[in-house]
């Protein structure tokens, strides 16, 4: 959707089709005409979220391979690595947000739609473990189309292995925040997606389990225009707040401060 060309100062908004200049996008990548957001890469997300220079990347434990020899997967992986200049659909690390140290997992929809596979699942479990060991708050920026089909049952089993480890986070007494961004679907939505202490949804994000198209085909009814949007989830009581991207960092700082255990003076 938001796969931007590399070096052009003008891009077409994928939603309204209007031409938007680089300077108009930056830094939050919201279309000045229709107000819809572009999907961010993990790096772009970090840039507008964490304190400058505070990001300490943690290396993933292993590299993704096409261990099932699934046709076309190796090429897809290669292409994703080239376009994102990244190893996988998630970045994990430790950073400061408003001075508060946090453990973070940031998913990237530009890498095979942020799908959950063995490597991404292991990274999620790894950063959970680090949050527990180092007694840190944990923030996930979720962006995922669900389980990665090309790794079959091994992708599916990431859902329960993450959840089997999830109650360990309770031992930290530190806050866990999930920010659901566009898209948050399938196996990610139905595993750790909603299990944090607070679930924030970025405005306009599509969030759900089954895809809108599948639901349309199965029920033979056209879902409403705002179906599975962050705003719709809020009215159904499924998320705590819908937060505009421009306010996300401030909201996170507020939550972190409210859970920091310090007296709050401002």
């Amino acid at each position: 959707m938001s796969h931007m060309p590399e070096k052009n100062s003008w891009q077409v908004c994928q939603h309204c089709g209007k031409h938007v200049h680089d300077l108009q996008w930056a830094p939050d990548f919201r279309c000045p005409f229709c107000g819809v957001l572009q999907r961010l890469t993990a790096d772009q997300r970090l840039k507008i979220t964490v304190d400058a220079g505070s990001w300490q990347k943690i290396d993933l434990k292993f590299q993704t391979t096409n261990f099932l020899n699934f046709p076309g997967y190796s090429e897809k992986l290669k292409r994703a690595k080239t376009t994102t200049d990244d190893e996988e659909a998630i970045k994990i690390g430790i950073a400061n947000i408003g001075g508060f140290p946090v453990a973070m997992g940031v998913m990237d929809s530009h890498f095979m739609m942020g799908t959950l596979n063995t490597t991404v699942g292991s990274a999620i479990k790894q950063i959970m473990q680090i949050a527990i060991e180092q007694q840190l708050p944990l923030i996930f920026f979720v962006a995922s189309g669900g389980a990665r089909m090309q790794e079959g049952i091994f992708s599916l089993l990431q859902m329960n292995t993450i959840l089997n480890q999830w109650p360990d986070l309770e031992t930290t007494k530190h806050v866990v925040i999930n920010v659901l961004t566009d898209p948050t679907m399938g196996g990610v939505s139905a595993s750790f997606g909603f299990k944090a202490d607070y679930v924030l949804a970025e405005d306009h994000a599509q969030i759900g389990f089954a895809g809108k198209r599948v639901i349309g085909q199965t029920t033979h009814e056209k879902p409403a225009e705002n179906f599975q949007t962050a705003e719709d989830l809020l009215t159904h009581g499924l998320v705590d707040q819908v937060v505009a991207r421009e306010n996300m960092r401030t909201k996170l700082i507020t939550l972190l401060r409210l859970h920091s255990g310090d007296d709050v003076h401002d």
Binding site: G193, F194, K195, G208, F209, V214, I215, E221, A224, H236
Partner: peptide, 20 residues
């Protein structure tokens, strides 16, 4: 289930809760 009803009433979290 793939339906608006299940989606709007939190099927994702219901599945996650049962797995957990």
């Amino acid at each position: 289930d793939a339906s608006a009803f299940s989606e709007e009433h939190g099927q994702s979290e219901a599945i996650a809760d049962l797995i957990l």
